[in-house]
């Protein structure tokens, strides 16, 4: 063994190695999802079926998309507190203009992605705290949504409804969608060469700048991607609910943050996992209502159970990370 490793006496192999701890942490989201599925199967075996999954995971698709959007922003050490109301806004556009005047609808949606990209530029150039800027934007999106649809209503375009209620053979649609989203984003962010630069921005922005890359460009790219996935999330949501409401996505902001963290991401340092984030979103979606309903948890306590599940999973992760840090 070269003397280098002994310069910092660290165990580099076996169960105490950092690689093992990281693997454990990477598996944790999957483990918690499995646990919840087992619990559901035990409580109500009939839920583990094609239709059961279709029903239980239906709302997981928009949550997963919003989580991915949030993940892009978190990758570059920022936070988006407006994704929820943005999803609501997109929902309203989808249920009104996209159906009645498709061209206008498409233009508005593309423009909203442009707004997201511009926010990334603004935050970077003026060195603004993203929390506050996106907090302000959350009012803006909600205001626009209410202007567009003062009362719940509208109707999703037929093609979208049709798409969201696809019934492919053997594997329920939400499962396929989740896999496609997870693998697609994983490839783009974790496997492409520019993806490495994007993640590097979160890890050590100065090193990226010194290597000649533009941080402005990476941030704008990530915010624009967040916008794209926010749009997809809003469309998927309206495709499922078939009509829209200005407050449709309000809960998604916090769900999305929780999903990213549950999936193994960290707020700073560019450490994120697309697959983990999708799994985190599925876990939250399942824990949110199906599990609790099957457990006969009174509705009063369902929110609390959600909080408790978050705390338990994150505490488990903290334990693993602590071992990582103590090595």
């Amino acid at each position: 063994m070269s003397a280098v490793t002994s310069a910092e006496p660290a165990v580099r192999t076996g169960w105490r190695s950092p690689a093992f701890a990281r693997m454990l942490r990477a598996l944790l989201p999957a483990l918690s999802l499995a646990l919840i599925l087992i619990a559901i199967a035990w409580l109500n075996p009939r839920a583990i079926s094609y239709f059961g999954f279709n029903l239980m995971l239906n709302l997981a698709i928009p949550i997963a998309l919003a989580t991915i959007a949030q993940m892009f922003v978190i990758t570059v050490n920022e936070l988006d507190l407006s994704i929820g109301t943005f999803v609501g806004f997109v929902g309203c556009v989808t249920a009104t203009w996209l159906r009645d005047a498709p061209l206008l609808g498409v233009i508005v949606l593309l423009a909203s992605i442009g707004v997201y990209a511009a926010l990334g530029a603004l935050i970077h150039l003026r060195n603004l705290p993203s929390i506050v800027v996106t907090l302000g934007m959350s009012f803006v999106w909600q205001g626009l949504a209410i202007l567009m649809l003062p009362k719940p209503g509208g109707k999703a375009p037929d093609w979208l409804q049709g798409f969201m209620s696809l019934k492919p053979p053997f594997v329920p649609f939400p499962v396929i969608a989740a896999i496609v989203i997870a693998l697609g984003v994983h490839f783009a962010l974790m496997r492409t060469s520019y993806g490495a630069v994007l993640r590097g921005t979160g890890g050590n922005a100065q090193a990226i700048r010194r290597a000649g890359w533009s941080i402005l460009k990476t941030k704008v790219t990530m915010f624009a991607l967040a916008g794209v996935f926010g749009v997809l999330s809003g469309m998927a949501l309206v495709g499922i609910t078939t009509s829209a409401d200005a407050n449709l996505g309000n809960g998604y902001t916090l769900l999305a943050i929780a999903g990213v963290i549950l999936g193994g991401g960290e707020f700073i340092g560019g450490r994120v996992s697309p697959i983990g984030a999708v799994i985190g979103a599925l876990t939250l979606a399942l824990a949110a209502s199906p599990l609790l309903t099957f457990m006969h948890i009174p509705p009063d306590w369902q929110v609390a159970a959600n909080g408790a599940i978050l705390i338990i999973v994150l505490a488990a992760r903290a334990l693993i990370s602590r071992r990582e840090a103590d090595r």
Binding site: R126, N127, G136, F139, V140, G143, A246
Partner: peptide
């Protein structure tokens, strides 16, 4: 004004104020 405009303006003003006030040094 309607609730929508109210929210919209509130948001724009928050973003405007923070942009005008500028960020902290890196």
């Amino acid at each position: 004004v309607s609730a929508g405009v109210r929210l919209l303006l509130t948001g724009l003003i928050i973003v405007g104020v923070i942009t005008a006030a500028g960020g902290q040094p890196a």
